[in-house]
Design a protein around this nucleic acid. Sequence first.
DNA 1: CGCGGAATTGAAAATACTCAAAATTAGTGG
DNA 2: CCACTAATTTTGAGTATTTTCAATTCCGCG
Lengths: 255, 255
Amino acid sequence: MSQAIHFPNSAPVSLGAIKASCAACSMHQLCLPMGLDDADINRLDQIIGSRRRINRDERLYAMGEPFRSLYAVRYGHFKTYQINAAGEQQITGFQMAGELLGMDAISGDRYHCDAVALEDSEVCEIPFARLEELFGHVPTLLRHFHRIMSQEITREQNVMLLLGNMRAEQRFAVFLVNLSARYAARGYSSTEFGLRMSREDIGNYLGLTIESVSRLLSRFKKQGWIEVDKREVKLLDPVKLKAIAAGTDQCAPMS
Amino acid sequence: MSQAIHFPNSAPVSLGAIKASCAACSMHQLCLPMGLDDADINRLDQIIGSRRRINRDERLYAMGEPFRSLYAVRYGHFKTYQINAAGEQQITGFQMAGELLGMDAISGDRYHCDAVALEDSEVCEIPFARLEELFGHVPTLLRHFHRIMSQEITREQNVMLLLGNMRAEQRFAVFLVNLSARYAARGYSSTEFGLRMSREDIGNYLGLTIESVSRLLSRFKKQGWIEVDKREVKLLDPVKLKAIAAGTDQCAPMS
DNA sequence: CGCGGAATTGAAAATACTCAAAATTAGTGG
DNA sequence: CCACTAATTTTGAGTATTTTCAATTCCGCG
């Protein structure tokens, strides 16, 4: 935890000023440069700031800080959460490599949530003012940026559906299936992965208590749908899990 | 309810091809043209399609339909909702004059939810392809568009917080206070307004049953916080309601 | 006047929460 | 590498909030 302290005025120099390169990045098919030709990728590269390393439990940005940059996750995992007046906290998402952070800040010039690394991670800083300049010259980039923002809107609508209409079992199945699909898209196993977040984080995200999450995990294990060892998870019956997640599962849920 | 029937293939011709005019629209300070100078408003006017009248219970667009246009509400109210594989429905928002519909469709070229009028309403059609062209010429417009999308993201994050962390009483207070603020911003009374949506819609939006909403309404009335007559609501103690909504209310909630 | 959708109210039931304690795991320093 | 401590997770029992089911009531409209 020694690096949990913030140095608001110190430049992010952990790795020197290593420029990020979209062209060379393994995530460029999922991230902002998706669909750009080489020339345009180079233009994007030129505006992208340095990489920045964020250690586990460190904050990338905090609610209320002035907004200057979006961040693309290079590797590692983040969580973003909101806190209201009463101190109630809601995790609004878990982000992994290739995903963009900070889009909720554009409207108010300040970040609207906190972003914290779940493990040692690295991000590319994307100064938003320069990105806006580039939009005028690279229409493809602008179009793709709109898609990404729109995707974030639909992602959140799906979470609203989850929180508003689903019971605990279904919520948890949706959570597992969603992680599975995202790892698959990144070339990782869709059936075996480590949960980067605590049970508490999962519960907060799903609108459940930590105890409920723990019970769910035990029950899914007992049913033979998953295997769990600490934070390592193995999906033994992905079809069943998908059915539960979709709400099309026939079998009555039992204790 | 005679208008509850849908005419999917009938052209929206109710008012002929009346062009919308942002400059003359009372909502232009809240809507897309916010902050544009007269010259730029004119350019926007030129691309904006005809007004379109949508009667109560009619659909403006349906999930899966190809996306071509955003819509700005001129007057009236809409609800947008999502349906998943199992037929579970979640209302993702209620939109009123000056608000934009369809931003969730940009990512996939198809609308991701249904939009239905809660009362006889009118929208301006904004062909998205032409709007994109205009972005290249009117940076102020582009910047404002990004703000609007970003605002939608934060709005949804707030709903996530509501659905994930709040009990029924607080959810309902948030709902009332939010409507109040939005009417105030439009020059209407912040303490007296009609609910355009059914109890069922409210419940669906807030992740509660219709019975719970009804009980909440009765309880708030009994406490002297509001007056209710059918769908007309009067906020008698806005301070108290705001405190409950913020979660900073001191008094223990009682039955 | 009567029908039908919408809303209210009551009682019973269920799901998930709270509180409490035990077990496991991770982190730290010797 | 081990021991110790703190943090996280699991499990159990009892409780509370909200849902479900059922029965009215209210209202708009033909």
